[in-house]
Computed example of a mutant assay.
Amino acid sequence: MSIFQPLASPKRLSHVVVFVAGVIAALLLGCLAAPSQTPTRDKLLWPFATTSPWNMPIGSNAKYVDAYIGSKGVGVDTDWFITTKESDPVVATYMPGGWDKDRCTGTQPQQQAQWHPEAGQPLKVPDDLIIADARQGFTPNNSSAFLMPDGKTLVSFNVTARCKQGGPLYGNWFGEQDIYGDGIDGGHGGSGMSSIGGSIRKGELLNDEPIRHALKIVIWGKWLHYNPSSPTPGRRWPARLADGGAANQYQGPNPALVMGSLLAIPPKVTAESLGLTTKAGKKILAAMQDYGAYVVDDSGWDYNYLCLERSAELEYEAVTGRYFNDDTALQGDFSKIIAAVKVIDNNGRDSVGGGGTPRAPLAPPIGN
């Protein structure tokens, strides 16, 4: 008797072959029948076109040059992103009554309305929206973007305030933008750049996913350079403005560091080499290496600010039990990151992030 037994009789084997062939055919048919799924993203969490400077990674051809920023103090510059509905009440929008207090006073029409009639139009605003007035020692830029019920149009303001529920909205109108567009323009008054592009969003400081967009920072104008002979004194693409008083405000000697400069951390720098201790700090570092951060405003004093959407700021407080501005460990990490930044000196319209092979995957298309 042979010790080698057949696995099955010829008849049984034929049934096995038919069964296996049937399974393979079914799988193949299933694959052919199933539509291909292209990854997409939520425009409310990850806005603007794939090629927007906010969504383009640093490239392999990036030219890193020194950027001296001497300020050690760090904090948050709050950005406001408000989605509106057809059912929201329509309210008047007025110029703010002041900068350091009494923003919610007066009925001065929007200054831009004389050139842009749409600036003077009432706006749909959620009835319960409150954006606090300034006070002594607290004069936020409060750049804002209101997404209209069409799901496409953003209306941007600077120095935004609404001190009581149901009241009018106060702020400097900074135009309309398309949430599917390049995302460059908006309500940051020093640069004319986006109110929400580059803002850290809800979840991004605390989840386990990388931040997949460029950031925004606000630094003291003392460190920014102003060259009156430049074709764009005090700024570079993608900034469309420099501060009105830039000739006096900007005192830095470094011609690479101007309004709109893209700052980044060189690839060889690590969290360990900088001595970072917080999860949020390490995530900011990774984003600064992969995407960088654009300078969008003058802080007005010896301080650096990271731009967060209000929802992200509130989430951080709720989860950690600390205000971002009171979290000394995170502040220490951000201060170390600022001390290590360089300028991507060849960032430009035709070489976003310096060009070359991107350090991170490009953003998928917006889902709707």
Rank of each mutant, 00 (worst) to 15 (best):
C163S: 14
S261R: 06
W173M: 06
V76E: 13
E309I: 00
P117R: 05
Y323N: 09
A246T: 06
A67E: 10
H225A: 14
G22Y: 02
G281T: 04
K279H: 12
D243T: 11
N304S: 09
A287R: 07
S52I: 01
S52G: 08
G59H: 05
G59T: 08
G189W: 05
V76D: 14
G73Y: 05
F324V: 03
Q331T: 00
N172T: 12
I184P: 14
A33E: 01
G190C: 06
S36R: 04
F324I: 03
P6D: 03
S351G: 02
R349M: 09
D302T: 07
Y170N: 03
R310E: 02
F157Y: 15
T277H: 08
V125Y: 15
G73R: 08
C104P: 13
T51N: 15
P168R: 10
I338G: 01
D182P: 05
F334Y: 07
P231E: 01
P266M: 04
C163Q: 14
Q111D: 11
M259A: 10
N61R: 01
D326A: 06
T38G: 04
K222S: 06
V74F: 04
N325V: 05
P96H: 11
V91H: 11
V295N: 10
S71D: 10
P57H: 06
A247H: 09
N227L: 03
M1Y: 13
T105F: 00
G187F: 00
V90Q: 12
S52T: 09
M193A: 02
S299F: 08
Y68N: 11
L274F: 03
G244M: 07
G198Y: 00
I337N: 02
K43L: 09
I338W: 13
K11H: 04
D345C: 08
S191Y: 05
P168M: 10
G59Q: 07
A239W: 01
A132W: 11
T277A: 06
Q121P: 02
K268N: 12
K63T: 12
G221V: 01
D102F: 00
A25R: 13
P228H: 10
F334V: 11
V16D: 01
F146V: 01
P109S: 06
V341I: 07
L205Y: 09
A287F: 08
G171L: 11
P266S: 10
P53V: 06
I184H: 14
M1W: 13
G186M: 02
G120F: 09
V295A: 04
Y68K: 15
G354P: 12
V319S: 03
S9A: 03
L154G: 05
N227S: 14
D79K: 08
G59F: 03
L224C: 08
I82A: 01
P10V: 03
